[in-house]
Nucleic acid binder design. Sequence first.
RNA 1: GGGGGCGUAGCUCAGCUGGUAGAGCAGCGGCCUUUUAAGCCGUAGGUCGCAGGUUCGAUCCCUGCCGCCCUCACCA
Length: 497
Amino acid sequence: MTDGIAKDRLEKLQALRSAGQDPFPPRVPRGQPIASVLSDFAQRTGQTVTLAGRLGVIRDFGKLRFAHLEDRSGSIQVGFQRDKLAAFWPDRKRIEGNDLVSITGELGTTQKGEPTLWATEVTLASKALRAAPEKWHGLTDTEQRYRMRYVDLFANAEVRQSFAMRSRIVREVRAYFDSLDYLEVETPILQPIFGGASARPFITHHNTLDMQLYLRIAPELYLKRLLVGGMERVYEIGRVFRNEGISTRHNPEVTMLESYEAWADYRDIMARVEGLFAHLCQRVLDGKTKVTFREKEFDLQPPFQKEKYLDLFAQQNPGTDWFDHQSVLRRAKELHLKTDGIEPAKLANDVFEATVEDTLQGPIFVYDYPVAISPLAKRVPEDPRITERFELFVCGMELGNAFSELNDPIDQEQRFLEQMQHKDDETPGEVDFDYVTALEYGMPPAGGLGIGIDRLCMLLSGSTSIRDVVLFPLLRREVAVPVEPHDVPVAPPDAPK
RNA sequence: GGGGGCGUAGCUCAGCUGGUAGAGCAGCGGCCUUUUAAGCCGUAGGUCGCAGGUUCGAUCCCUGCCGCCCUCACCA
């Protein structure tokens, strides 16, 4: 806060105070959204209105000044004329670009027809002590944009747009499940046993209980307890935390949708997913079904393509048997995959991911996954090695995962115990026996679904990086720079004590 | 963690073969009542990410470190 611009602005702030004006008044005339006067501007010419927002660069003509005023709905030109602002005119330079203001005036046009609010009353709403980024390029430095998202947002309208879209997506996901009579619920984020997915957790501690807790990696096991409890249709949209690497598709905390529906199976859930995408295209993309993502076009119009996991595996790895460890090992080495200490099923799936995932342009449902990599899914009746599970892929990116939920407590317990045999740091430290107990009370057959909301937002908004759909992505801490305190009185000199 | 790229004024960026830095915008002073990336005249503003090294001399070359981006690995 030591640069020259800040000094100039601080001086203006003090000058305002000395003149008895509050640079941060508790309230100002608020008026109406700017868009509301622009939509039928022709009819409004001559009307007096009040608009409030952030001032852009001021174009100064001496006795006439122009600037744009921007609020959440849009922006409009404001004209300041000395003739109409006699009282304000001497103070005009204390209000400058980037300040927040409320302006009352008459709607009209310029000689070139630009809709303009000709100011008759100007009220400073909040003094900006820092200048806005350059008007033409905005803030482009990626690091600055993430660290100072507040600047990114007001400087770059398209960033506001894309987060507005994220908000609409979440709202419409809710609307979709609400319309199907699902209940939205909230389950614990702090969990004594982490489960429901395969990921390394964040570990924390509760002081009073002196108990180690994990930030959840998935809400799954709690939501299915609700099925046992008779809630039949539930969903949760909430944060999950995975202590993994950070990349364009991975943030340590992401927003997950999980839904569970009793008396449904994975075929029904496929239809739900297709219905959800149709709904989102309708309500978020205004009926458009085509999106551009990573320079390719994808049509989200259901029905989606459907292929069996093992068929895709066989196509890309002819001669390799997913269930034969020796043949998988051979193929994995051919692909230069890490094979040491990798459990056979995991390795076979690594081969799948290495050879198949990039080919999945989609939208495509990959279905019938091996049981060894699907510990919570129900087996298909014809083959105990396979489960009723599918994943949704678009552009090689996994968007969702769903299955007919395993409700056989004995099978579930055995699979948990099996997991304990070849435990890694992504496996829970202990079996969630309470979950098994819940199943023993009887869980209806059900279909469950998980969709990564962040990736869904990436797809629908065409964002290449997850950081462009997360308001405050995690970054390393900056080296702390001691801040010099403002040496400025906070009240005018003659204020009562 | 590997590979590649980047870091220069508040913002966006130049800066040649090594000779201690420049523009536009923003700021400040001035002119201008119809501009809209306004214009014109003047002016101020720098730990060239940080720390070493080489050199008579480093924004530039070398090493290490910090941060960001891309990519690979990792990652339901």
